[in-house]
């Protein structure tokens, strides 16, 4: 009896506060969000109608949403490739008994401590003024016109900035993975006459499979949820050429005042991210079994 009382007290004091906050901030809005998708609510008026699954149908029949989904895929795919290759390359270089490893690591990581809004604006100035001026001075025509005003190149600008930022982040995870590769395995491969390239290809990379999986999935979810940089670097432009899914949801809800449709788009994003995360869990589990 006394013990039961103590347990109830413990539950109320230690478990309830966190659960209460989480339920009111995450769970209730999530369920309420599903309800909103069944309505044509505009975010302002008090009344709305139930329209069933119409919003979900509109999501997929809406060409502009599919278009932004496609753009997100292109952006995500390119960012995953470039930032992982660059991040892994830097990590490999830095773990090769280099002096000043800490300083390099700190430098490459710097873009990640700054918010996406500010980073986007910094690059806005770089693309609009610095690169164009540089292009003119060396007579390189590609650079003379700002990437951000060209619908064909604005996406490239986003990928460049994301790669610049993410590679430093991934580098840190890759370094942690590479440090854990047992030294005797590397030495054994050296005795077997493995050169630098073979050591990387056949020893180090297979040993950090898990880090690679983590980094790849991390980049996928991060890029699917990217909003800040999309807003401050290109604002979806020019001519909506860089309107990606998270930005699109925001626009649908808060600019076009279609809350039901916007929430349905958000649910679609949720399903995509959830599938990616489930895939990650299966892939990393499998990796654990093999190791």
């Amino acid at each position: 009896m006394v013990k039961k009382r103590a347990n109830i007290r413990l539950f109320i004091l230690f478990v309830v506060p966190a659960m209460f906050i989480w339920i009111t901030v995450v769970l209730i809005p999530f369920i309420y969000g599903l309800f909103i998708t069944l309505t044509d609510w505009n975010g302002l008026s008090a009344d709305f109608n139930f329209i069933g699954l119409k919003n979900y149908l509109s999501v997929f029949s809406d060409g502009s949403f599919i278009e932004s989904l496609k753009k997100t895929f292109i952006y995500s795919f390119s960012s995953v490739i470039f930032s992982n290759i660059l991040g892994l390359a830097i990590a490999l270089a830095l773990t090769g008994k280099i002096k000043g490893q800490n300083l390099f690591r700190m430098g490459f990581f710097t873009p990640n401590i700054i918010g996406g809004i500010i980073l986007g604006y910094i690059w806005n100035f770089i693309f609009a003024f610095a690169l164009t001026s540089f292009g003119k001075s060396i007579g390189w025509e590609v650079l003379e016109k700002s990437f951000l005003t060209d619908p064909n190149k604005a996406m490239l600008a986003l990928i460049i900035v994301t790669t610049w930022q993410m590679s430093g982040y991934l580098m840190v995870i890759y370094i942690a993975g590479l440090i854990n590769v047992p030294n005797d395995i590397i030495e054994a491969s050296e005795i077997d006459g493995a050169g630098m390239w073979n050591k990387i290809r056949y020893v180090k990379i297979p040993m950090i499979r898990n880090s690679i999986a983590i980094c790849v999935f991390l980049t996928i979810t991060r890029t699917f949820m990217a909003f800040d940089i999309n807003l401050s670097l290109t604002a979806g432009g020019p001519y909506k050429s860089t309107e990606m899914i998270s930005y699109k949801i925001y626009q649908t809800a808060f600019s076009n005042m279609k809350f039901g449709l916007g929430q349905a788009q958000a649910v679609v994003l949720f399903v995509i991210v959830a599938i990616v995360s489930l895939l990650q869990v299966t892939v990393t589990r499998k990796g654990d079994d093999l190791a």
Binding site: V25, G33, A266, A274
Partner: peptide, 13 residues
């Protein structure tokens, strides 16, 4: 719930 992106609570919040 860690899986869910912020966008999915944004509008209801």
């Amino acid at each position: 719930s860690m899986v869910a992106p912020f966008q999915v609570y944004m509008i209801p919040l």
